[in-house]
Amino acid sequence: MYNAKAFSAASETSPLDSTTIVRRDPTDTDVQIEILYCGICHSDLHQVRNEWSGAMPTVYPCVPGHEIVGRVTKVGSAVTKFKVGDTAAVGCMVDSDGTCPECLAGFEQFCANSTLTYNFPDKHTGGVTYGGYSDSIVVDQRFVLHIPSGLDLAGAAPLLCAGITTYSPMHHWGVTKGKKVGIVGLGGLGHMGVKFAHALGAHVVLFTTSPNKKEDALRLGADEVVISRNADEMAKHAGSFDFILDAVSADHDINAYLHLLRRDGNLCLVGAPEKPLAVAAFNLLFGRRSLSGSPVGGIAETQEMLDFCGKHNITADVEIIPIQQVNEAYERLLKSDIKYRFVIDMASLKG
């Protein structure tokens, strides 16, 4: 065991503050990583403030962070995938049983015995896992990823959650050249959705309630921008989409988007509205349309996504902050005052 510097929340009403946590020494199959950058995901805020107490109650102290990019500083004797000095990344998972049908199929995100990067039982320490708001982390090599050379490391950090969350359903539902793809919402997830759909060759339409986001959406790769409150603009696209990625977490009418799908089209939720969404059955029956949801991807698919980003030079649009501003960043996150993802420069933790 060794001590690591971190920022943690002591309770659901406490601000994040500096602390010291205990990390395990690397085992034979472990990789120890000096964390250089860690993205801030909206789920970090939910977890810190115990807003998912029904499904995932928070254990304090809580060290969030699952968008981790760093440098390998130590490897176990059986590690073959990494060497000291490599750039490496860690996403939302740090372990799974490796033997169930889901793991064997490459879908570790669906493993019933997976271990999330923070606030999950830690079999090594007997406590809970601690995330990336820290100066280092130790992870089994199976859950460590390679960052392609040339990618901006700060911009690459959000790829470990926002990136794979949007890439995975596009991969699964076959977004390719010639497909018409809609992206609902232009936030941390939505802006990545636009970039991926554009790079995959699709005709990309961004749906937003904010006219002032049109210029930015076009810059990011959208071919068209539709103001979703304008009924005439929406009606022009009825029955024409192969796939729509819904990245909105606020309450909204998904029937308006189901109506835009062509035959066998799919609308996939990656946002997580607090309240159940009403679905009109006829919007699914007519046209054999489908409604789905998707979390992050498995490890192999996440590496595929990172390699794709390396090939197309895709990173998130980020605002880099020192860790001492993390509580302010959380408040700004609640106000959607960010384009499009906060990333913590972990060198600030040494100060």
Rank of each mutant, 00 (worst) to 15 (best):
M1I: 14
N3I: 15
A4I: 15
F7T: 04
F7A: 08
S8Y: 09
S14L: 10
L16P: 01
T19K: 04
T20R: 00
I21S: 01
V22M: 14
P26T: 06
T27I: 15
D28T: 10
I35R: 02
L36R: 12
Y37M: 03
Y37N: 01
D44P: 07
L45T: 03
V48G: 04
V48K: 05
N50A: 13
N50T: 07
S53G: 06
A55M: 15
M56Q: 05
P57C: 12
P61R: 11
C62W: 03
G65M: 12
H66W: 11
E67D: 10
E67P: 15
E67V: 15
V75Y: 08
S77D: 02
A78W: 02
V79A: 06
V79T: 05
T80I: 08
K81V: 05
K83H: 05
V84D: 05
D86M: 14
T87N: 05
D95E: 13
C100D: 04
C103M: 12
G106N: 08
F107G: 01
Q109H: 08
A112N: 07
N113W: 03
N113F: 11
F120R: 06
G127A: 12
V128R: 08
S136K: 02
V138A: 06
Q141C: 08
R142M: 11
V144R: 04
V144D: 00
H146F: 08
H146G: 00
G150H: 04
A154V: 01
A154P: 01
G155L: 14
A156E: 04
C161T: 06
C161E: 01
G163C: 13
I164D: 04
Y167R: 03
H172S: 00
W173R: 00
G174I: 10
T176D: 00
K180D: 00
G182L: 14
G185D: 13
L189G: 11
M192S: 00
M192Q: 01
V194T: 03
F196S: 05
A197D: 00
A199Q: 05
L200P: 04
G201S: 03
G201A: 06
A202I: 10
A202G: 01
A202Y: 02
F207I: 07
T209K: 10
S210T: 11
E215H: 09
L218Y: 05
L218W: 07
L220C: 12
G221Y: 14
D223W: 09
V225E: 04
E233I: 11
K236Y: 01
D242Y: 06
D242T: 06
F243I: 14
F243T: 04
A247V: 11
V248T: 01
V248M: 00
H252V: 11
D253G: 09
D253L: 14
L258C: 09
L260A: 09
L261G: 10
L261M: 09
D264Y: 08
N266H: 08
L269R: 04
G271N: 06
G271M: 14
A272F: 14
P273A: 12
A278H: 06
A278L: 14
A280M: 13
A281Q: 07
S290W: 04
P295T: 03
V296S: 04
G297R: 03
G298K: 00
D307N: 13
H312I: 05
H312L: 02
N313P: 03
N313M: 12
I314H: 10
A316F: 13
V318N: 02
E319S: 15
E328M: 11
E331D: 09
D337K: 09
V343I: 15
M346D: 02
S348P: 13
S348R: 10
K350T: 11
